[in-house]
Write a protein that binds this DNA or RNA. Structure first.
Lengths: 147, 147
DNA sequence: AGTGATAGTCAGCTCTGCTGATAATCAGCT
DNA sequence: AGCTGATTATCAGCAGAGCTGACTATCACT
């Protein structure tokens, strides 16, 4: 490792490369299911208290509404989700998991969890909790501090 | 915040949005200096035990050699660094900080540090150390566990 | 009926990062 | 010295992700 110490304490460097590493490992683990981490996140968020529209799903994931169009296109081509016009508001596309999508979600989520556990194993439970907590503070600002 | 809890524990979501947030805040803090976080990282890494070539700098930052060309172009246009042919190996471009670059590095680095401290303040010293440690493990694999 | 807002879609732009090719230079071998 | 293969910087071009702006269909309110 030729990375100098000064970089190993820079938050920007660490976040960027941690994400690269995680994305690679997750992509490898999800390859057998024919999806990537971004698509799995969409499948995950679709299981909610009520059926979500594209815009609602996009909002929960923090992606753009126009990006969601392409992602749903791909997932629909793969037979994992279906678009359905909402009966209450015909502007909305309700996105529903197909049975294949539910199966894919279950299995892929299991594989993703194993990757995370493996990568974080050296940290121990306390270390993992502290990492998650730190990232939550970064994402949400100080509001989340009291959780 | 409409983000469901299930996402706030997903490493991928947290890493991505933590990086987005940090990039925004750092960009704002660095705007007065006319550089962004990526360029500041290059300036930082140039201060080393010996003068670095473009390839060496790229290696330390984990960016591609072809990307480094464009970054150095920009920094050179801004008058912060200068390319100089190595005398020992005329294939290499030695990248040197100009006086303006050194001044910019000092001030910008101070501003970046303040942003990080502010964002991480709710965590306390122990929380910050645990976050850094967790990210280092993610980046470097389990080899770093014993540090 | 009419007006303004909302949801989905599409075309097109930017940014980043990468591959592949090229020219200059170096190092090792004969 | 000459030849060969590797290395450095550069450039053109491609792919992915995210965004803006425009358009259509639909809704909510008056």
């Amino acid at each position: 490792m030729t990375t100098p110490d000064v970089l190993m304490n820079r938050l920007g460097y660490l976040l960027k490369h941690a994400q690269i590493r995680l994305t690679e490992e997750v992509a490898e683990a999800l390859a057998p299911f024919g999806i990537d981490g971004r698509e799995l996140a969409v499948l995950t968020v679709l299981v909610a208290e009520y059926p979500l529209s594209q815009l609602e799903a996009a909002g929960r994931l923090g992606v753009d509404r126009t990006s969601m169009v392409a992602i749903v296109d791909v997932l629909e081509d793969k037979g994992l989700v279906e678009r359905r016009k909402s009966e209450h508001d015909r502007r909305k596309n309700i996105i529903e998991l197909t049975p294949a999508g539910q199966e894919c979600l279950r299995e892929a989520e299991k594989a993703r969890g194993e990757v995370e556990r493996r990568l974080l194993a050296p940290l121990g439970d306390d270390g993992v909790a502290a990492l998650i907590r730190g990232l939550q503070v970064l994402v949400a600002g100080p509001d989340v501090a009291g959780r």
